[in-house]
């Protein structure tokens, strides 16, 4: 059985936020909601200072804490490991958002799809993109599963200019991410949480 996942190489990430922008453009998420984000920090003291970046997205955990708490079955895990939400079943109780230790579930506040970014008339882009979302529901990164189902890569992977994101089947030992994980030192976020994330990081 496939287990789709991602390896993010922190050695080559330049913190350009292209993943954030590509995700935003592809998914058209409402204001304040970013599925792909980049944390940053400064390390050292001038002249030996540098900046480090940590791109984050839903970890599509092997044992996702957000799925069993859902009272309606709206949160589910596909056979290929992608964790997604069926908006038409979501009642907006936010149990999943509360139980996600990574803060990667986002609540679409009622009214936000009507006011959009400019507190009034939606732009043509917003009108086209917001059709996808339901007000008062929880939304999340789904590894661009529509694209994946067509054999494409997630938007953040395809757009990364440094090729820092490598997407593939972690269950396949010959896949690119599996090879990278075998050959490099890697880590996941909050391993103590017991969620077994499918997003791995190669150390900077």
């Amino acid at each position: 059985m496939a287990r789709l996942g991602m390896v993010i190489d922190l050695k080559v990430c330049v913190g350009c936020h292209a993943c954030t922008a590509a995700c935003k453009a592809t998914n058209g998420t409402p204001p304040d909601i970013y599925f792909a984000r980049v944390h940053e920090r400064e390390v050292g003291v001038f002249p030996n200072a540098r900046r480090e970046f940590l791109p984050v997205l839903c970890n599509h955990c092997e044992d996702p804490p957000c799925v069993p708490v859902c009272p309606t079955g709206a949160s589910y895990k596909r056979e290929d490991g992608i964790v997604a939400v069926k908006s038409d079943l979501c009642i907006g109780c936010r149990s999943c958002a509360t139980s996600c230790p990574y803060e990667h579930r986002h609540y679409v506040k009622p009214g936000i799809l009507e006011t959009g970014y400019f507190n009034g008339e939606l732009t043509l882009y917003e009108k086209a993109k917001y059709n996808r979302w339901d007000s008062g529901t929880v939304i999340k990164c789904d590894f661009c599963m529509d694209r994946v189902d067509q054999g494409l890569q997630p938007a953040c992977v395809e757009t990364c200019p440094a090729e820092a994101r490598i997407f593939g089947d972690l269950a396949d030992p010959d896949s690119a991410p599996s090879k990278l994980l075998r050959e490099n030192e890697s880590f996941t976020l909050l391993p103590d949480a017991g969620t077994k994330p499918s997003v791995h990081y190669l150390k900077a």
Binding site: V69, P71, S135, T137
Partner: peptide, 22 residues
């Protein structure tokens, strides 16, 4: 009042096996 879609609240009893909300 806390729910984003209270009109679908009846669905909240469909996962009693796993969810404490249910």
């Amino acid at each position: 009042g806390h729910l984003g879609n209270p009109q679908r609240a009846w669905r909240a009893v469909t996962r009693v096996g796993t969810s404490w909300v249910s």
